[in-house]
């Protein structure tokens, strides 16, 4: 290890300890477990700064925070799955003795043999760990994939296909949603006839040109080509809107971290 790296690590350790002590002194008398709380806040600040340090360049602090995050997340998700599903849902319906052991409320009379099916499928899934019998896990996987495909088929057909297509069938020149007859309400309010009509035309032209852009069975020339060109503009505007929202989202995350660092860690009263 380089001498500079050692000096930086020692400096960060000293700063961490100093911050912990100062935070603990600040929290003393306000909270019962102030030493633990001070450690958690300081450690959170350290991890935040470690992740942000990647903006400068890759470094051991960033790597430590990244690996810690991945490891803790995996362990936490597994733990949540076990305690909420196997202990929370399955055991109270299977066995009174196990319910007592895991300290969960037994549901008498709710026993049904079908509850063993997910147990068996779950165990089969674990066969993946065996080199010789790993193929058996495919039965469980097939069940998961088949069920998901079946459920999603109906779901997409109803909510993302039929309903979305229906929503684009909008009248272009007639009275809509009680806004009055054509030309009777041409004010510029959001609910006015004119704005509604423009919105409907935008939806109609946007959908049609967008579809034309993705229609490759005919050469994109002439009128068809112009419609396709308009389609790409519609797509770009959509992506632009998404990009704008994404920027807002990322800045929001930065604001969240700034709030944490300055208010919770450094104690600024904003």
């Amino acid at each position: 290890m380089k001498k500079t790296t050692l000096i930086i690590m020692a400096g960060v350790t000293v700063l961490f300890l100093l911050s912990w002590i100062i935070k603990a002194l600040a929290l003393e008398g306000m909270q019962e477990d102030y030493i633990k709380k001070a450690f958690l806040v300081t450690f959170s600040a350290f991890l935040t700064l470690s992740i942000l340090s990647f903006l400068y360049r890759d470094n051991p602090f960033y790597k430590f925070a990244e690996h810690l995050f991945v490891g803790v997340s995996a362990a936490f998700w597994m733990s949540m799955g076990f305690w909420s599903t196997i202990v929370g849902n399955l055991i109270p319906r299977l066995s009174q003795n196990l319910s007592v052991f895991f300290k969960v409320h037994y549901i008498p009379g709710d026993f049904n043999f079908r509850f063993y099916i997910p147990v068996i499928l779950g165990l089969l899934l674990l066969m993946r760990l065996s080199r010789n019998y790993g193929w058996i896990s495919r039965w469980s996987l097939a069940f998961i994939v088949g069920t998901t495909a079946g459920l999603n088929f109906i779901r997409y057909l109803r909510s993302d296909f039929i309903k979305q297509i229906s929503a684009t069938f909008v009248p272009l020149l007639v009275d809509w949603q009680g806004t009055g007859h054509f030309f009777s309400n041409l004010d510029l309010s959001a609910s006015g006839q004119l704005v509604m009509m423009l919105a409907n035309w935008t939806i109609f032209l946007g959908v049609m040109s967008g579809i034309i852009y993705f229609f490759f069975s005919k050469e994109h020339t002439g009128m068809f080509g112009r419609a396709s060109r308009f389609g790409i503009w519609v797509l770009m505007i959509t992506f632009g809107a998404s990009f704008g929202y994404t920027v807002m989202g990322r800045i929001s995350l930065l604001v969240g971290r700034i709030t944490f660092l300055f208010r919770d860690w450094l104690g600024f009263n904003i």
Partner: peptide, 17 residues
């Protein structure tokens, strides 16, 4: 929803879902 998801769900508003 989050900003990143912001533009994605507007069509569901228009369709009344």
């Amino acid at each position: 929803v989050t900003g990143v998801m912001g533009a994605e769900y507007y069509p569901y508003l228009n369709s009344g879902q």
